[in-house]
Design a protein around this nucleic acid. Structure first.
Length: 564
RNA sequence: UGGGGCGUCGUCAAGCGGUAAGACACGGGUUUUUGGAGCCCGCAAUCGGAGGUUCGAAUCCUCCCGCCCCAGCCA
């Protein structure tokens, strides 16, 4: 939380400030966010995006958006648009600096030729299996390929023929000549180029050989003048290789720094598992409101501000960690509490008849739009003889500590009147409560009793004649347990998807002010939580609201502790 | 039994030789026309363990223990 002074807040900023002190990069700080366009961004990426753009911003540098598109088989145009949209939505701007690793294919090829010329790279005819066999193991050194010592001329010619497409996929590769006995497997003559007769989303069929990540990333950083190349922990082992290529090429040398990726409780974060959830129909697409994807969070109703705050506050370090999703929710509520207008909606309606209220009368009662922010003003809410309250706000036989409505008990209707329950009408057959009768005290209009008497509860409500029907979808965690990947229960994570992670309610009654809101509109339904008009399914004829997050619920806690 | 990392409250996380920040969660109180929000208070005699150096160590050294990553022509 030192955003406005210059104190470093994490180890990366420490490193950067040290580099600024020593003038290592002439005092400049340039970063990049380098997604591979093979899937949708999730909140783990948001951490990286906030970090990279945040650093550039803090140190007056630039952050590029760069698509790491070196594998035409896995990458698709579709993902590029979604990634751009997500980064923009999060609130970041790459200006005119949107790049593709494929922009550098020509240059990378020249680099490769240069290494061949210097005897630092060679064409290997071994098959993939043979290469694996020669690589050795974690504890045993690898063996050199019989093709390792070809002449520069032969290598040059072979590489040229690879480039021209004279060989089939997998027939040959270009390898760096480093050290087959290195304890770091990445240094055992890593593959630089492989043959892939596949057309690339940007370069089409121009190439049939494609560079590997290790031979691409550092050089791309170098070309773009990146100073600090920030990536996740699993690339720590690749840093020696990153440095080796740059040094061998004699080009500008950025610095790679690794940090721990984000893990969140109650969800999964890898692209592969997210893909499984989508493909096997556990969720309805990448933007399902239960998904931790940026598009899912957006559709759920999360604000970009809350996600940014979250990413700042969780910090950046190198130890593996699992952040409590309650913390994300806290950041969300904190943001929404200040900005979201309050509205009234009854999700599971129970009809209330106010016997002593005039049959035809409608009163317009004044309600505050946001108690946290008077500048948001007030609105009128219609009140009449027939209203709906929440089913769970009435109990015929209330337990201890239940403050809400019960026979003979008086409560306040928010911004309206005190009402007292006088009768309960039940279905003769099922015994189910159909409606209740109350009387109101006209002197309590607005919610205060002139005689100073108090009530223990305030209920939200909606006038039956004025409310409109809408669908409301209640979302909960995709997984009930903290870490669905913990397999000590012998279960696959897919078997653990929370069957109650979505509950669709179709008989909800909403106050009229909600009638014309746009998709994406967020507000608080008083006493229930924050809700958002669904950006995909909601329309004027078919309003659909998603619960973004419930309000904290002390009563639920009490019930739980009472062993309910 | 190779290499690279990491171990500070339930969860994140500051701390960089001078005597353990903060946040979330949790518990209690206060206030309240949302059992919401706010406010207050509590919550690590100790930093994975054991030795050592030092007037002084979470911070330096040694050994040990635990966890994560690496044997794709993925990124």
């Amino acid at each position: 939380m030192n955003a406005d002074n210059n104190t470093p807040v994490n180890f990366i900023e420490n490193i950067i400030e040290e580099d600024i002190q020593t003038g290592r990069y002439g005092g400049s700080v340039n970063t990049r966010f380098p997604p591979e366009p093979n899937g949708y961004l999730h909140i783990g990426h948001a951490k990286s995006i906030c970090l990279n753009f945040g650093l550039a911003n803090k140190y007056k540098g630039l952050c590029n958006l760069r698509f790491d598109d070196t594998n035409p088989i896995k990458e698709e145009e579709e993902y590029i648009e979604s990634i751009k949209e997500d980064v923009r939505w999060l609130g970041f701007d790459w200006g005119d600096r949107m790049y593709y690793a494929s922009d550098y294919f020509e240059k990378l090829h020249e680099f490769a030729v240069k290494l061949i010329r210097e005897g630092k790279a060679y064409v290997d005819d071994l098959t993939a299996d043979e290469i694996r066999g020669h690589r050795g193991t974690l504890t045993e050194p690898g063996r050199e390929s019989p093709y390792r010592n070809r002449s520069v001329e032969e290598n040059l010619e072979l590489f040229e023929r690879m480039t021209r497409g004279e060989f089939r996929d997998g027939e040959r590769v270009l390898r760096a000549k480093i050290d087959m006995s290195s304890p770091n497997l990445n240094m055992r003559d890593p593959v630089m180029y492989r043959i892939l007769h596949a057309s690339h989303h940007r370069t089409g069929d121009k190439w049939c050989i494609y560079p590997m990540y290790d031979f691409t990333h550092g050089q791309s950083d170098s070309i773009e003048g990146i100073t600090h190349s920030i990536c996740t922990l699993e690339f720590e082992d690749h840093r020696p290789l990153y440095d080796w290529f740059i040094k061998a090429l004699g080009i500008y040398h950025p610095r790679q720094i690794e940090f721990a990726r984000l893990n969140l409780t109650h969800t999964v974060m890898s692209k592969r598992r997210l893909l499984q959830l989508v493909e096997r129909g556990y969720v309805n697409g990448w933007d399902d409101p239960r998904m931790p994807t940026i598009s899912g969070l957006r559709r759920r109703g999360y604000t970009p501000e809350s996600i940014r705050t979250f990413c700042e506050r969780i910090g950046v370090a190198k130890r593996d960690s699992m952040v409590d999703s309650a913390f994300l929710e806290h950041c969300l509520r904190e943001d929404l509490n200040k900005r979201a207008p309050r509205m009234m909606a009854v999700l599971k309606p129970l009809k209330v008849i106010i016997d002593n209220y005039p049959d035809e009368l409608t009163e317009e009662l004044e309600a505050v739009n946001n108690p946290e922010d008077p500048s948001m003003g007030t609105r009128k809410v219609p009140f009449s003889k027939f209203i709906y309250i929440e089913k769970e706000d009435f109990l015929e036989d209330p337990p201890k500590k239940f403050y809400r409505l019960a026979p003979g008990r008086e409560v306040r209707l928010r911004y309206a009147y005190f009402i007292k329950c006088t009768d309960v009408v039940k279905d003769k057959v099922t015994g189910e409560i159909i409606e209740i009768h109350c009387t109101y005290d006209p002197s309590t209009r607005g919610g205060d009793a002139p005689d100073g008497r108090k009530v223990k509860a305030t209920l939200h409500w909606v006038s039956a004649r004025h409310a409109f029907n809408a669908e409301v979808r209640l979302y909960d965690h995709l997984f009930l347990m903290d870490n669905p990947m913990d397999d000590r229960d012998g279960l696959d994570f897919l078997e653990k998807v929370n069957p109650g992670s979505v509950e669709k309610l179709i008989s909800c009654m909403l106050e009229p002010a909600l009638k014309e809101v746009e998709p994406g509109y967020r507000c608080q339904f008083e006493r229930l939580g924050y809700f958002c008009a669904d950006i995909v399914d909601s329309s004027e004829n078919n309003p659909v609201f998603n619960r973004i997050v419930p309000l904290k619920d002390t009563w639920a806690k009490v019930q739980k502790s009472q062993g309910q």
